[in-house]
Deep mutational scan, measured.
Amino acid sequence: EPLWIRPDAPSRCTWQLGRPASESPHHHTAPAKSPKILPDILKKIGDTPMVRINKIGKKFGLKCELLAKCEFFNAGGSVKDRISLRMIEDAERDGTLKPGDTIIEPTSGNTGIGLALAAAVRGYRCIIVMPEKMSSEKVDVLRALGAEIVRTPTNARFDSPESHVGVAWRLKNEIPNSHILDQYRNASNPLAHYDTTADEILQQCDGKLDMLVASVGTGGTITGIARKLKEKCPGCRIIGVDPEGSILAEPEELNQTEQTTYEVEGIGYDFIPTVLDRTVVDKWFKSNDEEAFTFARMLIAQEGLLCGGSAGSTVAVAVKAAQELQEGQRCVVILPDSVRNYMTKFLSDRWMLQKGFLKEEDLTEKKPWWWHLRVQELGLSAPLTVLPTITCGHTIEILREKGFDQAPVVDEAGVILGMVTLGNMLSSLLAGKVQPSDQVGKVIYKQFKQIRLTDTLGRLSHILEMDHFALVVHEQIQYHSTGKSSQRQMVFGVVTAIDLLNFVAAQERDQK
């Protein structure tokens, strides 16, 4: 057995438009009618409502009807409940999964919650491996369901041993009777949507819809739904939504950006999952974080739909894509998950301010006199920076000697690579993860907040409520011999709460 199987392995699926269902090699399930009293909570997966979006479509000038398939009504709160249950049931049916076995899954959280929910009911041990950027709410729900959680670096490539995929496979090879159901490759993922989600949409719309818009992560949702719609409703256009920084969209030119990270969760990847059939997507749109969270908040405030950030991405694209539809036509959007997962993220004004998705003037509360002053007023001194090749031991000596707790790590040209902190280095040394002679590049981390000289002290204040420091950066445009230009970030300084307090105190003292 291989040590790991690539999540982007070539698909062996034989589905073709027009091929009889009787030739399918898979076990198919028909939607079942729910009894009045459910035998367990797993029976509350599927049969989610279709809700008309009344205000947002009109606000953006849509002539067509805009409908939302509300997947956050599933038992675990997301569309991923469907595939989690289906993968477990299919693994039980073919004898792969037996009582007492362990389920391991690399996930952005929602599939993990679905699997942990099913594992709690069915009696399996469950280990979820997820990147650090995923919300604390997801972690809390997983723990409450009895799952064990392993976190991995957000910026690790999918084929790196440190990625959530790599760590999951390492655990599988170490733990007896453990299984990775593997949402990236498992046919049960798109089949769950082909058999149930798509049929529900067709039934709820009486077979009449002209466009379907869905955000894409593993691709199982859009693949399964689109294949069924292509068979039953061939005139329906399928629109895929991919965040900026991901590479799922086609044509490839759409993916060209210097951005590699994004805040919206559960969609987009740096590889093409095996289950994603991009041939059934008629057109791709890219979405960005700001519009995703703005539209998610709009869905909550104006439509009462308590959905997550990827739902915002989907609707932001839908109001663009559906401009081509006329009166009497219908566009369906998939709202994948609930706001429950993001209470401390985009639902929080403070978080939105820190990330730059909300401006101070958007909030009406009274601010102190210094709130709208610029960061450049602080008069920061030149920063202490270190090269990635310097040793951890030497870096600790320098920081202690100069009285700093942290320093930016830059390359020879001064471009920011990340940050090192005294606390992080000492804990890594004590844990045996690094040696004093190791290069400081081994303990770089990139989960820090950046701020510009033109940003306000109010925004800085919000950042420092949650973080010990902020890195002050400025952009530099560099022209190359080819005539092309590129933008790079340079370090201007490091600012802490002490710097802000000293500035405010000094100004008030001078005024007296």
Rank of each mutant, 00 (worst) to 15 (best):
K283F: 12
T344D: 06
T421V: 12
F469S: 12
M490D: 14
K442L: 15
K484V: 15
T385S: 15
Y479W: 02
Q259A: 01
V386N: 04
K355C: 05
V440K: 03
H474G: 11
L387G: 12
W370K: 05
L399E: 07
D337H: 01
Q376I: 04
L363T: 11
F357M: 00
R452I: 06
Q323A: 11
T274G: 06
L248C: 04
Q329F: 08
S313G: 11
V420G: 14
K359F: 09
V333W: 01
L430H: 09
L500K: 00
R452Y: 15
Q478F: 14
S381G: 14
A505N: 08
D270Y: 01
G312Q: 02
P383V: 07
D467T: 06
F295E: 10
P436S: 11
T385I: 15
E253D: 15
L430C: 12
V281C: 09
L430T: 15
F448R: 07
A506N: 10
R459V: 05
S246W: 00
V473K: 11
E377I: 09
M352D: 03
I396N: 13
K359R: 15
L248W: 04
E250L: 15
V491W: 13
I396A: 08
H462Q: 15
L378M: 13
S481I: 12
V472K: 03
M466H: 12
I390D: 09
T389V: 15
E258R: 12
F492Y: 15
Q507F: 14
W371N: 09
D467A: 15
S481Y: 09
D242V: 00
P408R: 02
Q329R: 12
D349R: 02
R452P: 01
Y445G: 03
A506I: 09
L380N: 03
H462D: 14
T389M: 14
V280F: 12
A470E: 04
K442M: 15
G328L: 08
L453Q: 11
P436K: 14
A296K: 02
G393C: 15
K402R: 15
P388I: 02
E508S: 11
Q447S: 12
N502H: 15
Q329V: 04
F469A: 15
G493Y: 14
F448T: 04
L248N: 02
F448N: 10
Q478N: 15
N255S: 07
Y445V: 14
A506S: 13
F492C: 11
